[in-house]
Design a protein around this nucleic acid. Structure first.
Length: 741
RNA sequence: GCGCGAUUAGCUCAGUUGGUAGAGCAACUCAUUUACACUGAGAAGGUCGGGAGUUCAAAUCUCUCAUCGCGCACCA
């Protein structure tokens, strides 16, 4: 027996060495597994991409959960002999990262515009690289068996190729267009954000009821009087008898120092019950008003600028912040006796998810992806569509889940997904920030060029905007597998007819087996991957989506720096070992449910690791020289084995059905309370009476070995360490076969 | 407004097709220097949120109410 077992288990000492051994062995790479004969060449593939963490800092417990669950899936698949690939990577997270670097610069007293675009980007790149190397270290500390040889970044050269190819194809299919539209403008981040990047918070507001002027016949109500200088119409419900006589008339009014031309229109979307039943239409500063104006061909009148200040050629208001302008207008209304009512209501305030800035709807020239426009599908392996079908992106997104080509776990999220797709509007993909994939469009006078490279000749100017970070993440399942061009093979990943070359990496591993991520990014990411993959490859990106919950503190609150209730996974790994951290994040956690975690739980699994260690020591002491080559088991001992195998069958079925929380708990329970407490105690007595009881020895050794294997996906470090200490050869438990039933 | 989830032991949660309520942690009693005190044995603790229904049988299925949490929409 190895002397190591005479001492208590020391995770910190062990884990680094073990991970190094794994890396040196190279068996996280499926190619190497085939080369070394631990995996058949024609074995069933199992592939998964790591949801790329943002390069904005260090990993938190949510990441740790993701890494633990995925590593369990991956190690289980690998031990079943599958051709197993887990691709790691990081996300440039455009706005978030840029904001972070700007903050750092601010502390140094530097402004980004003083640096200039190029210098600034260098700085961000440097930050991203540092951040990435920290993240890589943390992924390793968790024991994740990712294939480092395939490490990707959403903003590296190959992903840029993918992004530009995708953009170009969408543009040529007429799915990407550039248009003036009211978008969510974040004055703090100085950029647009997509609908999904906007948070709504309830707040108290005042609803003002007033008339523009004494001679205007209709009163309107608003919470934002300052925008009313941009009004071009008043809309009422077509059936509203109070206002019927005014519909179609236009009034010239003097309002707060501005001359307005207000047309009375009727629109079915107006609720006659709310306020006065009449709405002042401000096309430039409200999404819904824009839609109404669009239907009625009303002009656009912008009165607020990018800095959320008034700008309209009005002495009273110009240069004022919107909040100040509101007071000025309210005072003006009072003064002119036009204000009829002030009442408190609760409404929602919109803020930008990444910066917290209050959203100001503004008309902007932006790039959009049209989700409702039809195009001809070039190639399809999808159930509901074939090549040549005329479809929309929305239809593709819907059918991928409806047709059950994609299963979402837990099931209830399919409904949520559905609901989201139904309400989906065109996706605004341009961002006015510097960090990210610059839009692959070049302009020269009236000419426009969309392509992979800048056009030849002078005078071309590239669009200064960058793409929404989710555009590149949407390609992740296949941009990490060589699409559009397989460098290793030196040819495109798609054949002439648009189908995937079956010999390419893409052909082998795509669609990926499973996508595991947090339920909070189902729309941002999961839906966008489905869009991109069905459109560009005619394939779903993955067959199953497993959504894990959010990690919370014991009170159920989100962990955050400001609340100081966060548990740092790195501290926990340091204190209790990665195996214990993994177990604590898995057990008691079904898909889709939030995880309440306290340090006690992690400590409990450290005890378990020690229990395994000590039980192993006992078994090794008593079974010196015993082998499992020829089993000579007594009937009673055979029955013990049979009972264990029954549990194992149950556990395996849990694993197959993604019930890791049950499998882990059952393994824990069997090891501790059946194997250690009962079986070892019984056999201990027997061996004291008869030290040559082969059946007893073989039973112990067999049960230990099979349990180590089945525990390996959960607690890879300690099981590998034990394996290394009891085997003289250079075999690893990570590529042993999952115990046969 | 629409939808989703949760409600089971003091705490965190399991409970797979309905068949006598289960685990971890904490607390309690006792034992023990043992492969392991990062231990063992034992006891205690629940009218499964309330109510109604279906059934021979309901934590589980249906309806309803309540509380908490979440998503989406509206937001004049």
């Amino acid at each position: 027996m190895n002397e190591k077992f005479l001492q208590p288990y020391n995770p910190e000492e062990t884990e680094k060495t073990i991970y190094q051994k794994w890396e040196d062995g190279g068996l996280f790479n499926p190619d190497k597994c085939i080369e070394k004969g631990v995996c058949e060449k024609d074995a069933e593939p199992f592939s998964i991409v790591l949801p790329p963490p943002n390069v904005t800092g260090i990993l938190h417990l949510g990441h740790a959960t993701m890494l633990a669950i995925e590593d369990i899936m991956v190690r289980f698949a690998r031990m079943q002999g599958k051709r197993t690939l887990w691709i790691p990577g990081t996300d440039h997270a455009a706005i978030a990262t840029q904001a972070k670097v700007e903050k750092i610069l601010q502390k140094e007293g530097v402004r980004k515009h003083e640096l200039g675009r190029e210098k600034f980007l260098e700085r961000v790149q440097q930050y991203a690289l540092e951040s990435q190397s920290i993240i890589i270290g943390q992924i390793k500390n968790m024991g994740s068996s990712v294939d480092w040889s395939r490490l990707a970044f959403t903003l590296d050269e190959q992903r840029e190729k993918a992004v530009r190819t995708a953009f170009k194809q969408m543009y040529e299919d007429g799915l990407i267009y550039r248009k003036d539209r009211v978008v969510n403008w974040d004055p703090k981040g100085q950029t647009t954000v997509s609908d999904d990047e906007v948070n709504h918070e309830e707040q108290e507001a005042i609803l003002y009821t007033f008339k523009y002027s004494a001679d205007f016949p209709i009163s309107i109500a608003t919470t934002r009087p300052e925008t009313k200088v941009g009004d071009v119409a008043v809309a009422v419900h077509p059936e509203d008898v109070r206002y019927k006589e005014y519909i179609g008339k236009t009034y010239e009014v003097k309002f707060a120092g501005s001359s307005l031309s207000i047309k009375v229109i009727s629109d079915g979307s107006i609720d006659p019950e709310f306020g006065t039943g009449a709405v002042g239409i401000t096309p430039a500063h409200s999404q819904t008003d824009w839609d109404i104006a669009d239907r009625h061909n009303l002009p656009l009148k912008q009165v607020i600028n990018e800095y959320a200040k008034m700008e309209l050629g009005n002495e009273l208001l110009d240069g004022k912040k919107t909040t100040e302008a509101r007071e000025v207008i309210v005072d003006w209304l009072k003064e002119h006796n036009l204000l009829e009512k002030e009442e408190k209501i609760t409404n929602n305030i919109s803020t930008a998810e990444r910066t917290g800035g209050v959203i100001e709807p503004l008309p902007k020239l932006q790039w959009f992806i049209d989700v409702n426009k039809t195009f001809t599908l070039k190639h399809s392996e999808l159930k509901d569509f074939k090549a040549g079908d005329v479809v929309t992106l929305k239809q593709l997104m819907k059918s991928a889940v409806d047709s059950e080509e994609i299963h979402i776990l837990p099931n209830r999220f399919e409904k949520i997904y559905h609901n989201w797709v139904d309400n989906l509007r065109d996706w605004c993909i341009s961002r006015q920030i510097w960090y990210g994939h610059q839009i692959p469009v070049w302009y020269k006078d009236q000419e426009i060029h969309v392509g992979l490279e800048a056009p030849e000749g002078d005078g071309w100017q590239q669009d200064p905007d960058t793409l929404d970070t989710w555009f590149s993440s949407g390609l992740w399942t296949f941009s990490t597998l060589g699409w559009p061009f397989d460098d290793a093979q030196g040819k495109p990943t798609l054949l002439k007819d648009g189908s995937v070359n079956p010999d390419s990496e893409l052909g082998i591993y795509h669609p990926t087996t499973i996508l595991e991520t947090g339920y909070d990014i189902i729309f941002f990411w999961v839906a966008r991957m489905i869009l991109m993959s069905t459109y560009l490859l005619g394939q779903v990106p993955f067959k199953t989506t497993y959504l894990h919950g959010m990690v919370r503190d014991m009170k159920g609150q989100k962990m955050s720096k400001s609340k100081d209730n966060g548990i740092d996974p790195n501290d926990m790994i340091h204190k209790y070992g990665a195996d214990a951290v993994r177990m604590s994040l898995i057990i008691g956690t079904g898909p889709g449910n939030d995880i309440k975690l306290g340090e006690d739980k992690i400590r409990a699994y450290k005890k378990f690791a020690n229990k395994i260690w000590n039980a192993t020591r006992f078994v090794l002491e008593r079974t010196e020289g015993t082998t499992l080559d020829n089993l000579e088991l007594s009937t009673a001992d055979q029955k013990l084995i049979d009972t264990w195998r029954e549990s194992l069958a149950d556990i395996t079925s849990d694993m197959d059905n993604y019930r890791f929380y049950l499998a882990g708990e059952k393994l824990y329970h069997y090891f501790w309370h059946t194997f250690a407490d009962v079986i070892i105690e019984d056999l201990k007595k027997r061996l004291e009476e008869n030290p040559d009881d082969t059946s007893a020895k073989q039973t112990l050794l067999l049960l230990l070995t099979e349990q180590l294997k089945s525990l390996h996906p959960f607690m890879p470090f300690i099981t590998e360490e034990i394996w290394q200490n009891i085997h003289d050869d250079d075999t690893m438990i990570m590529v042993q076969k999952w115990p046969k039933l």
